[in-house]
Design a protein around this nucleic acid. Sequence first.
DNA 1: TGTTTACTACGAAATTATTCGTAGATGAAT
DNA 2: ATTCATCTACGAATAATTTCGTAGTAAACA
Lengths: 125, 125
Amino acid sequence: MKPTDAELEILHVLWTNGPSTVRQVHDALSQSRDLGYTTALKLMQIMVEKGLLTREEDARSHTYTAAVSEEATQQGLVDRFVETAFRGSASKLVMQVLGQHKASREELDEIKLLLDHLNRPDDPA
Amino acid sequence: MKPTDAELEILHVLWTNGPSTVRQVHDALSQSRDLGYTTALKLMQIMVEKGLLTREEDARSHTYTAAVSEEATQQGLVDRFVETAFRGSASKLVMQVLGQHKASREELDEIKLLLDHLNRPDDPA
DNA sequence: TGTTTACTACGAAATTATTCGTAGATGAAT
DNA sequence: ATTCATCTACGAATAATTTCGTAGTAAACA
């Protein structure tokens, strides 16, 4: 339930491209870094054991699908991260991120909008 | 420059309590989890090698001090986390955090205030 | 049909992180 | 001075992650 870094890379490929073979995942990951084919295979086999992926064995080359959603996974990662890196203070994390202007103005507006809603859950608007 | 989980725990103690001996750090950590004294010692020795801590050897029991600031460390952790978990989208991370109401209303207000400033850097106020 | 190619299975090496035991030294207490 | 408590140093076991090589199998093809 707590994917490692390498596992996250694979999940991202599957979340983005949908169900894929080892070959397809390996091709995608190879564009950004060096990675043996059998390494990708082994990782994906382990991920099936862990329940992170499911596997269709129809054809000769199996097709893998993410068994966990991107949202749920990221939520788990964030929870853990807030605990370990920010001693549980989610707002400190947000402040740290926003203070580093890694988000565009449009993104900031979007966030502000969300905050308005959160601040006034009883607001009719 | 990239502290592990155990190292972060120790850094948090030093950031909070200031320069401390292994004994003091161990006592602090023991309150929340099981940890051998020599484990804490070993970790702190390694952290000195890595440059995460400095050590005063005046007395018999050495005094350790955090050699990295909390802000800089958290910034590094956030950068890395945004990359691995959110493929570089800082705003997605923020949305995920805020959507889970882990922050109090006061904290949300504080964040909103910061956002206002970020949105209008040319604002005289 | 025989050869090449592409795939899976799996063992195991390499790396990193965490853990603790033991040994040795130094200071405190009796 | 001898004993006891406390400290550092350090080797090494354990665990988790990442990596890849080799072997076996089956499809594709010449």
